Computed example of a mutant assay.
Amino acid sequence: TGRIAKQLYPKADIKITGFEKADYPDDFFDIVIGNVPFGNYKVSDKRYDRHNLLVHDYFFAKSIDKVRQGGVIAMITTNGMSGGTFDKRDSKARRYIAQRCDLLGAVRLPSGAFEDAELPTDILFFQKRERQRDLTADMPDWVQTTIIHESDHVKENGEVRHNIVTENNYFLEHPEMVLGKQEVVNGQFGPQLVCLPTEGNLREKLKNAVSHIQGTIENTGFYELEEDIDATVIPADPNVKNYSYTLVDDTVYYRENSVMKPVDMKDSMLERIKGMVEIRDCTQELIRVQ
């Protein structure tokens, strides 16, 4: 599919590689949309290994770093046996997200919404904050879950296993965002929460649910779409850090989100910036080689 996409969109930067190997710059994209992989395993990525995140949570964490402040993340994630990102008892991943993002809204789809997908899925919408949130003073309610089922199971060896099923507080407070009937059923690994299909057109239900999600995204300036475009403005180089200087054909540019603009300063100051940029680039190259 990646090779097909390259043929269909030759001007797009399409990488056929694992997300952990993709070298996209931080604070660059306006929006990230994806259907993340799900599983009870982790991805090796030095930058995120210390957070000990499962693969689906890792995709959220890295996506947050790639969008700019005010950027939006819209992800489909399976709720799964272990409760997925939103329902599991362990709030570590949600705390990580809450420090960096605001929740715009979430929609829970019933099982079977996607072909060959029997488990329920969530569509989660987040917006990246300008500053990280202090969770000790401001803990969003959706970070927490509520126990909705408890039961004991006696194994053949006499050992008693205590089973607990939790649900995210957001869905408890917003049942209109659950597009099915939720029940606790006995699964392969014990009780689990499922979302069963109900009568009605799922597409219309989804359209209605999404209408409840409120949010705005600021225009960062798609100058190429404007009639009075300044010819000196160029698309941002992904390799240039946002809000920093760079050299293009011996001209000093300043990157701001998706574009780079030539800097208008005195010649003496421009020469000083050029020298500092060259020193910075040389230092970064030495670090990379080492």
Rank of each mutant, 00 (worst) to 15 (best):
I123D: 11
S91C: 04
F86K: 06
D87W: 08
R95T: 04
R89L: 08
R100F: 03
L119P: 07
T85V: 15
R133M: 03
G112T: 05
F126C: 05
V107N: 07
T85K: 00
D90R: 14
P120S: 15
D134F: 02
F86S: 01
F125R: 00
A106C: 11
R94D: 06
F126I: 03
R100D: 02
F126V: 00
Q132D: 15
R95W: 03
S111R: 07
G83D: 07
G84C: 13
R131C: 10
F126D: 00
P120I: 14
T136L: 10
A117C: 12
R131L: 08
S111W: 01
S111Q: 05
T85Y: 01
T85R: 02
I123W: 12
P120G: 15
R108I: 15
A117I: 09
K128W: 11
K88L: 11
R95A: 07
L109W: 06
P120D: 14
R89N: 11
F126G: 00
F126L: 15
D90V: 06
K92D: 04
A93P: 04
E130D: 14
P120L: 15
D122L: 02
G112E: 05
T121Y: 02
A117P: 02
L103G: 08
L104E: 13
R129Q: 04
D116I: 03
D90W: 07
A93G: 05
K92H: 09
Q99Y: 01
Q99H: 02
T121H: 09
A113Q: 06
L124H: 09
S111C: 05
K88I: 06
S91I: 01
A106H: 00
K128F: 11
Y96N: 04
T121I: 07
L104S: 07
D116E: 04
V107R: 11
Q132P: 09
L119E: 14
Q132N: 15
T136K: 12
Y96A: 01
A117E: 09
V107Y: 02
K128M: 11
I123C: 15
L124C: 08
C101T: 13
K128V: 10
A117F: 03
Q127V: 12
D102L: 04
T85F: 15
E130A: 13
F126S: 00
E118F: 07
R94T: 05
D90M: 10
Y96M: 10
A113H: 06
A93Q: 04
L103I: 12
T136S: 14
E118D: 09
L124R: 00
P120V: 14
T136Q: 12
R100C: 10
F126K: 00
F125C: 09
E115D: 07
D122I: 00
C101Q: 09
S111H: 01
A93M: 07
A93W: 02
G83W: 14
E130M: 12
E130H: 12
E130N: 13
T85W: 00
D116K: 06
T136Y: 09
P110S: 10
T136G: 10
D122G: 03
L119A: 15
I97N: 01
D87I: 10
A106V: 00
E118Q: 06
S91A: 08
G105S: 14
A98G: 04
R89K: 13
D102Q: 08
D90T: 08
